[in-house]
Design a protein around this nucleic acid. Structure first.
Length: 562
RNA sequence: GCGCUCUUAGCUCAGUGGAAGAGCGACGGCCUUCUAAGCCGCAGGUCGCAGGUUCAAAUCCUGCAGGGCGCGCCA
């Protein structure tokens, strides 16, 4: 594809194509020509690649430009034909082009593991995701965040970023105190001792279970530790079952102990972003709390509605302060790119922490992909998963019934910004309602070929396969993998890989099927070793790319379907 | 009231300036041959509505309507 782009650029630099022969020297020409986009055509047009570049250049070209461009382009030994339709240039490529492309995929070391010269350039990136409070189990709503973050991290690693996957443990706030008080109460209750259940405390059977791990003589601090450890280890188990493994677990407690809050405040003070003042009366908890002077952060310099308090009237930090300390900690660890995957109910928080981070370090790259809510369909209505409604489903129970591969694919195939309506019936079906099987099946089919032959892959440029549309289609899709991966990395969008995988799988299924009625199109051609070797080379390239895709999605690439 | 986001085929969704798409569902075909968990065909669209910018708008801008999520000194 890159080669085609270069050929086209070279061709268009020919001054004789233009009314004004000086035009190729102009800035405007340079800009247009640097934005050449080669794309795959829709199914209706019989060609391999196309480009819309002429739309931009048309008014500068001589009337007979089509004939001239065609003549020049056809001099290339990679291009078989040029067709002009509706202002597009459509390319038909020669077999040599397909052979070269296959060679590149197999030998260039870009597949399947490393060295893709993607946008990453070894940038140190921190992907923080699924940082749920250790006050309960991982439910299915959290799983979407976790799966998305994990896949983003996998894509970025493939795209040549230096990735750290991180979980931030909120183990220092009021929620943890409330949790520990709830557990303590249940513990005392179980020992028939007097107890007082905290207002708004944590209820649910897991609290009573947890209480069994504690003793009446434990201090609140000890109970906090026991509770956090318990839930974290449970969360970790569930994540591991979904093939999610964080590299670093950072605890809020440690951030506080290491004085990162104070350090961050000092930096912000030095930059003049901190001042003391009162908030507007109506904002001050509607008069419930005395409107004292608070430490405020000038988030309004980056279009926030109002400056945000860092201290409460009782002198304690607000939630924002430790989080800013945590982000300073990330910055000090040398990350140039911070990614923080958040739920839709945190989008206003996302804005604030982004501003705060920018105030700490102007040139930091910071993205906060937002995952929309997960709901499910019940009697024709969309019902939200919610703890309070008692219909929250623990991930562990969920994946007992539905394989993690299916759960992952279902959640990754959509853009994160679309609310997810979980279709339980489809999830349990083994058919195209579950495209993950379709993709895995294509991988298994490709592998079965290698079990059925002793011939090994080797590329012969003259192979007949390179003239055959079914093989050409596979190679064309393979050739766009690099761009696809880069795009997914740039947009932090695993669904781009999911859709690509489906299309790639389709090209193999088509080839396979046609081999059933036309034996010349099978991969293994008895009595013709060179042809078979070349076809195996294409199949191998296909398997490498598809396995890479499945790896970035965190989905198993099976060698056979059982 | 304000902010973010969404509205594309019967359903679930891709598509961020360039030729309207996929899967499911419906209908009709295809296995004595490398895995039929598959393939082929057919049907299905005023891209929420109205303006604007552009050679070109589902895509960008403005307004409107409808859905979702937020809008504490809680985290």
């Amino acid at each position: 594809m890159k080669q085609l782009e270069q050929i086209l650029q070279q061709t268009l630099k020919n001054p004789s194509l233009f009314q004004d022969e000086e035009f190729t020297q102009s800035q405007e020409f340079a800009e247009i020509i640097s934005n050449i986009k080669i794309t795959l055509p829709n199914g209706k047009i019989d060609c391999h690649y196309c480009t819309n570049i002429l739309f931009m250049l048309r008014r500068f070209l001589k009337p007979d430009f089509e004939t001239n461009i065609r003549t020049i382009l056809l001099k290339s030994d990679l291009i078989a034909d040029i067709i002009f339709i509706n202002g597009y240039i459509n390319f038909k490529m020669r077999p040599k082009f397909f052979a070269q492309m296959t060679h590149e995929i197999l030998d260039n070391d870009i597949f399947p593991n490393t060295g893709i010269d993607a946008s990453g350039n070894k940038t140190k990136v921190n992907v923080e995701y699924c940082s749920i409070n250790p006050t309960g189990f991982l439910h299915i709503g959290h799983a979407r965040n976790a799966i998305l973050g994990d896949s983003i991290a996998r894509i970025l690693s493939k795209a040549n970023y230096d990735v750290t996957k991180e979980y931030y443990v909120n183990d220092a706030g009021n929620q943890i105190t409330l949790l520990a008080q709830s557990v303590q109460a249940r513990c005392l209750e179980a020992h028939n001792m007097p107890f007082e259940f905290p207002e708004g405390g944590y209820v649910g059977p897991e609290i009573k279970e947890l209480a069994k791990l504690t003793k009446p003589e434990n201090t609140l601090e000890e109970i906090k530790q026991i509770s956090v450890d318990y839930f974290l280890s449970e969360i970790k188990k569930d994540l591991n079952d979904l093939k999610i493994f964080h590299d670093v677990w950072t605890h809020e407690k440690d951030i506080i102990k290491s004085n990162f809050i104070e350090k961050a405040i000092e930096i912000l003070k030095a930059k003049g972003y901190i001042y003391y003042g009162k908030r507007e009366e109506k904002k001050a908890e509607k008069g419930k709390i005395e409107n004292k002077d608070l430490m405020l952060l000038k988030t309004t310099v980056f279009q926030d509605d109002e400056d945000r308090p860092l201290t409460k009237s009782d002198g304690e930090w607000t939630y924002l302060a430790p989080d800013i300390g945590y982000h300073l900690n990330k910055i000090e660890r040398g990350f140039g790119y911070l990614i923080c995957v958040l739920g839709a109910d945190h989008d206003s928080y996302a804005r604030r922490i982004k501003i705060a981070t920018k105030l700490l370090k102007e040139d930091i790259q910071h993205a906060t992909p937002i995952v929309q809510m997960v709901s499910f369909e019940h009697e024709g209505q969309h019902v939200k998963f919610s703890k309070r409604a008692g219909n929250s489903i623990r991930t562990r129970d969920f994946i007992k019934e539905i394989h993690p591969d299916i759960v992952r694919y279902m959640m990754l195939a959509k853009t994160p910004g679309t609310p997810f309506v979980f279709d339980y019936e489809s999830a349990c079906t083994v058919s195209m309602k579950n495209p993950v099987f379709y993709i895995q099946y294509a991988h298994a089919r490709g592998n079965s070929i290698f079990r059925n032959t002793t011939v090994t892959q080797k590329l012969h440029e003259k192979a007949f396969a390179f003239t055959m549309p079914e093989f050409q289609e596979i190679i064309i899709i393979l050739s766009s993998f690099k761009n696809t991966l880069n795009e997914a990395a740039l947009q932090l969008a695993p669904h781009i890989i999911a859709h690509y995988s489906q299309r790639l799988a389709e090209s193999m299924h088509k080839l396979w099927q046609i081999g059933k009625t036309d034996s010349t199109k099978r991969i293994i051609i008895d009595g013709n070793e060179e042809e078979t070797q070349s076809r195996l080379a294409i199949t191998k390239a296909f398997l490498n790319v598809l396995a890479t895709c499945l790896e970035t999605l965190g989905i198993n690439a099976p060698e056979s379907m059982n």
